[in-house]
């Protein structure tokens, strides 16, 4: 049987997610034995090919050139995977309360305006690997499941679900504005486990309840940050629509 052809691409990003993939080290070597990597600029792989079985795309779309490239990748690929928050949400967790229109328009290379768009604004995305950066093992799981022809599902629970399993003291009790309750889990709650509040890098949990988080913050005397109100406006208070 022919090995599935894989391409790895970057739009505008910090490439931290690809570094996470490289950090899988030996595991990535093993993985590469069962596929044929035909395109990856970062690693210097460029073979000729027509069709891709799996395209892995990191980064947000920030220019017409990138938009064109992305559409081209989509056309050639059976499966397209968005890798990391930049690709999944346009790096939104960073831009949470950032007003794009306020950017001066004097941009180089003929750019007219500033944008940072998720891939699915332009093309169909088959699978999302969330996080900024992604979790390596999460990525491995996706890859294995794709190779076995299964459907990958990102973690359905929130960060708190994993956090309580680790017996962490809840940061909310210490008055620290942790976003764990509304954030998609799957990272093993790394931040709260190191005593650091979750900043929501994996995006909203499926059953995120912004209202109740605002209530929790208020009850514990934590100042409700502007972006939570903004978020409430965008996605509604209760379940995400």
């Amino acid at each position: 049987m022919e090995k599935p052809k894989v391409g790895i691409f970057s739009m505008s990003s910090c490439e931290g997610c690809l570094v996470q993939v490289l950090n899988l080290e030996d595991k990535i070597l093993e993985m590469m034995r069962s596929v044929e990597l035909v395109d990856c600029r970062l690693l210097g792989v460029k073979k000729s090919y027509d069709r891709l079985d799996i395209a892995i795309v990191e980064g947000a779309v920030m220019s017409d050139e990138e938009e064109r490239e992305l559409r081209e990748i989509r056309e050639r690929s059976k499966i397209l995977v968005a890798l990391g928050d930049c690709a999944c949400h346009g790096g939104r967790f960073l831009f949470k309360d950032f007003k794009f229109d306020s950017v001066p328009v004097d941009l180089p290379r003929g750019l007219k305006s500033f944008r940072a768009d998720p891939l699915d604004k332009y093309v169909k995305v088959d699978y999302y690997v969330y996080g900024c950066p992604i979790d390596g093992d999460d990525f491995l799981r996706l890859f294995k499941e794709l190779l076995m022809g299964k459907e990958y599902r990102p973690a359905p629970f929130n960060v708190c679900a994993e956090c309580v399993l680790k017996d962490n003291e809840c940061l909310l009790d210490k008055g620290i504005p942790c976003l764990g309750p509304i954030t998609r889990g799957g990272c093993g709650a790394v931040c709260p486990t190191s005593g650091r509040r979750c900043i929501g890098c994996r995006g909203l949990a499926e059953d995120a309840n912004v209202d109740s988080l605002i209530e929790i913050f208020t009850k514990r005397g934590i100042e409700v940050p502007e972006y939570l109100w903004e978020l409430k406006k965008q996605v509604g208070g209760g379940r995400r629509g």
């Binding site: 505008s12 947000a60 990138e66 831009f95 950032f98 950017v103 941009l107 290379r109």
Partner: peptide, 15 residues
């Protein structure tokens, strides 16, 4: 010629 989309981090940091 750097081609990477500008990520305007300093702007995001303001405020």
């Amino acid at each position: 010629e750097a081609l990477e989309g500008t990520r305007l981090l300093e702007r995001i940091l303001l405020g």
